[in-house]
Nucleic acid binder design. Sequence first.
DNA 1: GCCCCTCTTAACACCAGGTACTAAAACCAG
DNA 2: CTGGTTTTAGTACCTGGTGTTAAGAGGGGC
Lengths: 199, 199
Amino acid sequence: MERLPKKERHRRLARLIEDNPFITDRELTRLLKVSIQTIRLDRLELGIPELRERIKLMAERSFDAVRSLPLHEVIGEIVDLQLDRSGISIFEIRKEHVFSRTGIARGHHLFAQANSLAVAVINDEVALTATADIRFIRPVRLGEKCIAKAYVRSSGKRKARVEVATYVGEEMVFQGNFLIVRSAGAQQDGGGDRLADRD
Amino acid sequence: MERLPKKERHRRLARLIEDNPFITDRELTRLLKVSIQTIRLDRLELGIPELRERIKLMAERSFDAVRSLPLHEVIGEIVDLQLDRSGISIFEIRKEHVFSRTGIARGHHLFAQANSLAVAVINDEVALTATADIRFIRPVRLGEKCIAKAYVRSSGKRKARVEVATYVGEEMVFQGNFLIVRSAGAQQDGGGDRLADRD
DNA sequence: GCCCCTCTTAACACCAGGTACTAAAACCAG
DNA sequence: CTGGTTTTAGTACCTGGTGTTAAGAGGGGC
């Protein structure tokens, strides 16, 4: 068995761990034909954490993902609601809502809060978002409290235009115009709705 | 410190571990005021594996589910990506994405898929959504597979216009135009971004 | 009272999969 | 041959457990 140059071994090591993060150093010695100390020095040089740390990192990532996914029913806490007129909801940005790298909230959470509120403010059993026009005005960071205010600007029989502005303190961070449709049959917000702009 | 009945302690133990699987037996002793041996007997009775096994299980589950998407902070599975040109992602509507009453997907999930893809397709370390113009064309139902296709329509130094259309089969269900901004300093999609329409 | 029983705590040996450190051997180049 | 890197070996120690044995604590039954 000939020895590999160190660089090549590093490449292989990184590759092996990448596509099987559950491999132990001892198993790696068999595959790379070097001592366990060499494997460990290599990991050290490459900045690859030990098995348990690797596993833990994966688990934590998936835990966060599962936590943040639910995006269920109404996003944000509705603190005031005058049907067909206006509404206010509060949503606090937690760690499951931000990009871990930058601490900045992911856009769809702000959208979700605004969308949920726009739908809630319409006084109908079944209300669906048809179109939305949104602007992310400035990034929102971990820990900030987003206060979304919705006003119904025009309200027809089937369509309603709702304007939502989201603030952190005095500062507007998000703004959107939603076209909401009432009782278009059997659907409700979300997936969109029957009308969009063809009805 | 009064002792809890065993059954109650078991309930609490299970609960504690469920909503923080990363807790050690030693930490549990502090919370439940019993010895570490008792904690371990309890876990044995309840069939709750040790910390490392719990973590490993989570990691394995997520590894299977996630291994195809290296882009972890993306909603939907990216199956094709040509940076600065186009991208495709697939997202299956599960029960956690729909209104339980109607089985229709909530809008922000479709938005999240499209937004994630629009950001991913931009070849820049930090890309942020500035504005979006979206239409929900028809409701999407439980079990449907949404295929989002993104095309970069124009790509300047700082801004790029990305068009995303989402299909179920042949049918278009969602369409959006995103204005994405590159490297606006230290931020990233999500919360919106510096520019919106004032930069 | 005493015996029995469950529950709880203690103590000790052992394990995997490492880290951290020291030291010796192997290899290679100038 | 000598100096530097690279590799291997060995030891002590760590965490978060398992597995086992044993001893108390706190009843209830009769």
